[in-house]
Design a protein around this nucleic acid. Structure first.
Length: 872
RNA sequence: GGGCGUAUAGCUCAGCGGAAGAGCACUCGGUUUACACCCGAGCGGUCGCAGGUUCAAAUCCUGCUGCGCCCA
């Protein structure tokens, strides 16, 4: 604390320039070690594992929102005295990164196969060193208070060891197996994909009906993928379908081939869809595969890994999209096309990484048997070990984990964690643990790598040193909160839950899951490259600063619901920062300080007590809203208090108190200092930069980052002060309204005589009221040319003004007529209720009382206004 | 096809049983010694539609319609 004697001046520049200050400030915090977590601390821990961004990615609005939330949460806990660990890092993004490097290689006319596996992987590491992790620098610009000393990457040695450890454990427990099944295959990335790496969209296609067989023994099937008929091994119908009962068990010749295929009965066929008969291609459709299994049908693969036709004949070598019309044309030639529908809109799966249409493909892959893991993941939420916010989304989580399909984890890539399984002579298979030697001669390792999510599912504990029993793990696991968008609840949250519970002896990976909404444009539309409505957060950081960007995002963050953002929102937040800046400058120029003790309540003015009470309520509200993850609401409260209460009213009232000088001015400086101090502390988690600068100037303290969070004390209900301020606000507002209606310039001072002020208990505030309403004392020759009566909670005040004769009677009549209409409507509503005996009988007494007093006020207002109008 | 959510001022959203709110936009007036990124005043809504419950419904229930999301 400084010994600054009030009043003093301030060195604060006249405007807040974020670009000039933020970088330096941030580096200062990092250098001071404020964000470094201490495992040996005896403070309670608070941990957030940053959802690792993709190593190839850069900061987008979704990140900016999520990072703002996590930073706000951790900064508050740090101020509350927790040992905070916010752990940063990235994932290796198998497909995306490999694609990026292969694209690079392609410009040199090379493929990864030209380099060979080892050289290629080296090349990826080089690429990462040079281009990867752009986002880490962008996080600094946002102000993320992460512990950089603990930064992790999913391909690090330690995390790779964690991957191998859990793979071995799952393998030994029989939860990992290898099976030949239909998987989602990307013919461009040349790898398997899990269900959730496939995006479905409604695309234009075609529906072609084809007749198999002839005459009575013929049957018509419909398909959107005519080319797959080359791999048909049956036609299926529902067993109860009267139309086809006679055909069950018979065979039909398959057109364009020399094969005949059976007609089988299967309960899963929907008789009402199409013709009720479906062609069965077990090697190229997941449902057909199941039918094939049930009826022991052969699977004929007709497409290679690039989705090029491999069956001999006229279609050999054609791409699937080329083969489709060719097959239809050939069938038409034979007169087998019964109907064609184009366009036929249907759901088509696309690779989430490259957009290529996914090809269901029969292949041998590694799988995680999720049933026991998913049940545990559901239970952890069901029994409250992990809480989902907002709770409505828990249902979606249960729907997912309770109906989860086994997870394909092998990827036909080079960049990633290689599957630690070796194949030896006589079909021997061996899974190698992290501390074991791979088998020697005659054994080869599986060439595939693991899904990136397999390693990021370990993130909350692999980053803390698992499988070693580290102090960090002991101190910081389970993590406190996982914050992420609800869109990756399934992708990632469920998987972290499964692996966390499994690896950590049923201890959940996080106590709370906070799910925020998605960012949309000003019209509520999804941001996308194609519609060009995306906003780059870096642009906002450049033009409005980190605080404004963060405040905009936090202010829109209502739990679980999407938020629209636009330029104007950021500008509004910037304006708020400027307002805070200027208010602080004013306070400091007038000697606001935290070095002076706030005097006891009896020595304070109504205005002082009023603002202090509001401040206490603000602390309590904001504190509670933080606990509830209600970022939008807490931002709104802070905005409203700062601008509408503190700036618009208290600062104006304080001007009069400061002008009084002496003890009154000193008390005011103390109150200004206290309230401002609280505002800055409360705002710091969301707007760390501007609050830091202002707070240091106000208090001379080291840093707001390590200053204590305000504690919610007793909220005093000083109704006298509250009513008097309400009265003075009413008085000032009515005078302003009158002046505005009368066309009196805002700055023009008007002589006025006030009566009834002391009787209403507003004597102490009269000077303030005059200052705010620009009213001067009546001078010699004062001649009231207009007057108005203002009813306040504590009495009616009459204001007589000398407008030098020029009174716009028509404007005044209009104003009074409008007031009268409002009062009459009010009276009518109150009477309607009170005249209803059921209301007076059944409604609670306090409600009836309230309506009665409202009626009384309305009656008095009507009487007063009517008298005025009559007198005009 | 199944499930979930939502419909409130021109726009984006709060409010979720007892007097319709905010931000932005808009209109008018302002060199008021913190701030024009500002100040003051104002305009603007039968709370999607139709029923029901209740003394009382934007708020609870039912149906309908529109929109959105997830899953198949």
């Amino acid at each position: 604390m400084t010994n600054t004697e009030a009043p003093r001046t301030t060195d604060l520049p006249t405007a807040w320039d974020p670009a000039a200050v933020e970088g330096r400030l941030y580096q200062g915090w990092v250098d001071a070690g404020y964000f470094t977590a201490d495992v040996d601390s005896d403070r309670p821990s608070y941990t957030i594992a940053l959802p690792p961004p993709n190593v190839t990615g850069s900061l987008h609005m979704g990140h900016a929102l999520n990072h703002t939330i996590m930073d706000a949460l951790t900064r508050r806990r740090r101020m509350q005295g927790y040992e905070v660990l916010w752990l940063p890092g990235m994932d290796h993004a198998g497909i995306a990164t490999q694609n990026a490097v292969e694209k690079d290689l392609a410009t040199e006319g090379k493929s990864r196969h030209d380099l060979g596996r080892e050289a290629f992987i080296e090349r990826v590491w080089d690429w990462k060193a040079e281009y990867g992790g752009k986002i880490l620098g962008q996080m600094r610009r946002l102000g993320d208070g992460v512990d950089w000393s603990r930064e992790r990457f999913t391909m690090d040695d330690g995390l790779s060891k964690a991957v191998q450890t859990i793979f071995k454990k799952l393998f030994d427990d029989g939860l990992i197996y290898r099976a030949n099944r239909i998987i989602n295959w990307c013919p461009r990335c040349l790898t398997a994909l899990s269900d959730i790496e496939v995006d479905h969209s409604d695309d234009d296609g075609e529906l072609v009906s084809i007749r198999y067989g002839d005459g009575e023994n013929s049957i018509v099937v419909a398909t959107t993928r005519a080319e797959t008929m080359l791999g048909d091994t049956a036609v299926a119908v529902h067993p109860d379908d009267e139309r086809y009962k006679h055909l069950i068990g018979k065979e039909v010749p398959l057109p364009l081939t020399d094969r005949v295929i059976p007609i089988v009965a299967d309960e899963h066929v929907d008789p009402s869809f199409g013709t009720g008969a479906v062609k069965v291609t077990p090697a190229h459709d997941p449902n057909d595969f199941e039918i094939g299994q049930r009826h022991q049908l052969p699977s004929i693969t007709i497409l290679d890994e690039h989705a090029v036709v491999t069956v001999h004949g006229p279609f050999l070598g054609m791409d699937r999209f080329e083969a489709r019309p060719a097959v239809v044309a050939a069938l038409r030639e034979e007169g087998r096309i019964v109907a064609e529908k184009r366009p036929y809109v249907h759901s088509v799966g696309h690779c989430s990484r490259c957009g290529t249409v996914v090809e269901p493909r029969l292949s041998l892959q590694w799988w995680v048997k999720v049933e026991p893991l998913a049940r545990a993941a559901g239970d952890a939420v069901r029994d409250g070990r992990t809480q989902i916010h907002p709770p409505e989304l828990a249902k979606r989580y249960f729907d997912w984990v309770d109906n989860m399909h086994d997870w394909t984890i092998s990827r036909q890539l080079w960049w990633g964690h290689r599957i630690p399984v070796w194949y030896g002579p006589n079909d021997k298979v061996m899974c190698v643990g992290p501390d074991e030697e791979p088998p020697g001669e005659g054994w080869t390792q599986d060439s595939d790598v693991l899904d990136t999510w397999f390693s990021s599912a370990l993130w909350p504990f692999s980053t803390l040193g698992w499988p070693d029993q580290t102090k960090a793990l002991e101190k910081f696991y389970p993590t406190s909160v996982l914050s992420t968008g609800y869109d990756i609840l399934f992708f990632w949250v469920a998987r972290m839950m499964m692996f966390g519970l499994y690896a950590m002896d049923e201890v959940q990976p996080f106590d709370h899951v906070y799910l925020h909404g998605l960012i949309r444009d000003a019209q509520g539309k999804k941001m996308s490259k194609s519609s060009g409505n995306g906003i780059d957060p870096l642009d906002w950081l450049d033009r409005y600063g980190a605080d404004a960007t963060r405040f905009t995002l936090a202010r829109g963050a209502n739990p679980g619901s999407d938020m629209a953002v636009a330029e104007e929102w950021a500008a509004g937040s910037r304006n708020f920062g400027t307002k805070l800046w200027n208010a602080s400058r004013f306070a400091l120029m007038n000697g606001a300080t935290t070095a002076l003790e706030v005097p006891s309540r009896s020595e304070l003015t109504d205005a002082d007590r009023w603002i202090l009470d509001l401040e206490a309520k603000l602390v309590s509200d904001v504190d509670g809203l933080f606990e509830d993850f209600q970022f939008a609401k807490l931002c709104d409260e802070l905005y409203h208090f700062t601008w509408d209460e503190f700036c618009d009213w208290y600062l104006e009232l304080a001007k009069v108190q400061l002008a009084e000088g002496g003890a009154r001015a000193d008390a005011t400086r103390a109150v200004l200092g206290k309230v401002l101090d609280t505002i800055l502390r409360l705002l710091h988690p969301v707007m760390p930069f501007i609050t830091e600068v202002l707070w240091k100037e106000l208090t001379g303290g080291e840093s707001l980052v390590i200053t204590s969070w305000p504690t919610a004390g007793e909220v005093t209900a000083d109704t006298v002060a509250a009513q008097r301020i309400e009265g003075i606000q009413k008085l000032v507002t009515e005078v302003r309204r009158f002046r505005s209606d009368q066309g009196v310039k805002p700055g023009q001072r008007v002589p006025a005589r006030l009566s009834g002020v002391a009787e209403a208990g507003l004597g102490e505030l009269e000077a303030s009221a005059r200052s705010l309403a620009r009213l001067t004392e009546p001078e010699d020759g004062f001649a009231a040319s207009a007057s108005l009566e203002v009813s306040t909670p504590t009495g009616t005040v009459t204001v007589e003004l000398d407008l030098s004769g020029t009174v716009d009677v028509e404007a005044e009549r209009k104003r009074l007529t409008k007031d009268l209409a409002v009062a009459e409507k009010e009276l009518q509503q109150c009477e309607a209720k009170l005249n209803n005996p059921k209301f007076t009988e059944k409604a609670p007494a306090d409600v009836v009382e309230k309506i009665k007093s409202r009626r009384a006020v309305a009656v008095a207002d009507i009487e007063r206004i009517k008298a005025r109008l009559a007198a005009m």
